[in-house]
Design a protein around this nucleic acid. Structure first.
Lengths: 112, 112
DNA sequence: TCTACATACTTAAGTTTCTTATGTATAAGA
DNA sequence: TCTTATACATAAGAAACTTAAGTATGTAGA
């Protein structure tokens, strides 16, 4: 993910979250969806995305289906059962992280 | 920072933010403050913190003052003028990142 | 007294996760 | 024809951590 070299470690969670919503997606589609959702703020690079997808597949969290579409090959990814569970726990973990982060960035709030 | 190997890249911003609030702090104090603010959720490791402090100092964002206290040496860090500006921009950047991240994690919100 | 834990800082080795760059290949539009 | 978009893969290098080891003092308990 580009867009400010921030927060390394959230890409896998983002991928799992999108697949939770979309049933199946291919790599390029993921890059476009993220760009769309964030109004261009996040630009996921291929060099980051594809290795992440391969890793999640190797861990048994994703399965793939390859299909030719318009003369090009598309590789669709879907969550496995374990992938679903991982998506839930990783998203929760990230949300809790954000809450803690905000406590540090803005200690005044949350004390009342 | 430990606590779930999440979000690499936010430690420098956290340090700058704390120094914005506190005028001067020493390393160990920073680790304790973060632990306190997050109720133990974030545990900043020394191996992460000290190199970060040295780097920020090398970049001219922090200055140091060493003082012996109770027979031990403390190294106090303060923001320079540039450090103040960097703190503002980095905190803003991180907050914007969080907003974008939430758009991806919860695309339903923010559409109405 | 010895042990353990807290305080306080430093640095090296290894890992993870990116960025940047390169390569392959097809389709569409100027 | 050239560029841009679509679509995937992977290697080299950098950044930011974790883990681990080292140095050193103060305090509290067995």
């Amino acid at each position: 993910m580009s867009s400010s070299k921030l927060l390394k470690g959230s890409l896998a969670t983002i991928v799992l979250r999108l697949l939770e919503e979309n049933d199946r997606m291919y790599g390029y589609e993921i890059t476009q969806k993220v760009k769309e959702l964030t109004a261009g703020e996040f630009k996921i690079t291929e060099g980051a995305l594809y290795p992440t997808l391969h890793k999640l597949e190797a861990e048994g969290l994703l399965t793939t289906e390859t299909q030719p579409v318009d003369g090009r090959v598309r590789k669709y990814y879907s969550l496995t059962k374990e992938g679903n569970a991982a998506a839930r726990s990783k998203v929760t973990e990230l949300e809790e992280f954000i809450i803690s982060l905000q406590k540090v960035l803005n200690p005044k709030l949350g004390l009342g």
